[in-house]
Design a binder for these strands. Structure first.
Length: 296
DNA sequence: AAAAGCACCAACCGCTGTGTC
DNA sequence: AGACACAGCGGTTGGTGCTTT
């Protein structure tokens, strides 16, 4: 659509927020509430774009933000949710009151990838316990954020260049055997309201299609296979997932469409996912209730 | 002690979905 | 129906501090 970047205006501040800016933003939102991000900076006396204000508020200034280390319970939940949902950080954050998508994303990228990688040294073993479903190991992603600067500046914008070029740097890429990263469907409006936020997140905007599906079929319909060397691991995708290589076609054709098959796969997937579940509810019930919550 | 490398994470960027006109 | 604005999301960058050499 060609909309200019919101921060392109000359004179707007970028970079780290100062305490003064934080105070201005907080004060304004406390007085007038969230929303109207576009006009908020001007009204609040901030030289920031609305987007930047929104991000700052959502990630750091909201009163319900929980600071501090991720607990082991949260850690475990993130891993499980990620194996279920992929990189849908906002959904995962919705299950962790007080945590933000950005925080979880950072935590995943800095801690959990390494942790899981250590747990699963042989990345080709397609065991059910391989809970590293989507993100390639860092060395397969040399453009990713961890390897950077100080060594040289030529790496800057590299990933964007690659992106723009469309895909390929064939000579450095290891053969791809996995299909992952779901292009997430935007299940907005979440169903999983943050603990005390009364923000726009609470709106529910699920599509009519989503509403017609049962939780189970909804969850199952989001499944997609991740092709290991020979086996399918079932990860969750959005319906319009991106297909990243030719093996995707196999995956797509493998993708079942009738509900009984989907439900069977769903159950299979869930069993793989919850080998060590707790006793209270059956895992299926837990996931069903979670899936139901997605549709509320 | 200094330099280089690494890890962390706040913030930005670009894209997409939705609502409104 | 199409264009546009807004809100939200995930990917990525880059500054900073810590660790290692």
């Amino acid at each position: 659509m060609g909309r200019a970047p919101c921060c392109s205006k000359v004179g707007l501040h970028k970079g780290p927020w100062t305490p003064k800016e934080d105070a201005l933003l907080t004060k304004y939102i406390q007085a007038h509430g969230e929303g109207q991000w576009k006009s908020l900076p001007k009204k609040a006396g901030l030289l920031r774009c609305g987007k930047s204000c929104r991000l700052r508020w959502m990630n750091y200034l909201r009163p319900d933000i929980k600071r501090g280390n991720i607990t082991p319970e949260e850690d475990d939940l993130i891993i499980r949710m990620h194996s279920l949902l992929g990189n849908r950080w906002s959904l995962i954050a919705g299950r962790l009151p007080g945590r933000t998508d950005n925080e979880i994303k950072n935590y995943w990228n800095t801690h959990l990838i390494k942790k899981l990688k250590n747990q699963v040294p042989d990345h080709d073993t397609n065991t059910p316990h391989n809970k590293l479903p989507t993100t390639p190991p860092p060395q397969e992603q040399p453009q990713s954020g961890n390897k950077k600067k100080k060594s040289n500046n030529s790496g800057k914008k590299k990933s964007k260049q690659q992106k723009n070029k469309g895909t390929t740097n064939a000579k450095e890429q290891p053969p791809k055997t996995q299909v992952y990263l779901p292009k997430p469907i935007r299940v907005k409006a979440l169903y999983l309201p943050r603990s005390d936020s009364n923000t726009s997140n609470s709106a529910s905007a699920s599509t009519s299609q989503e509403k017609e599906e049962t939780p189970t079929t909804k969850a199952a319909s989001n499944m997609v296979c991740e092709l290991g060397d020979d086996v399918g691991f079932f990860g969750i995708f959005g319906e319009d997932h991106d297909l990243v290589n030719k093996s995707d076609m196999e995956c797509q054709s493998y993708f079942p469409t009738d509900h009984s098959t989907l439900e069977r796969l769903y159950e299979e997937y869930f069993q793989l996912l919850n080998m060590d579940h707790d006793d209270d509810d059956s895992p299926l019930e837990q996931l069903d209730s979670f899936a139901e919550s997605l549709l509320e």
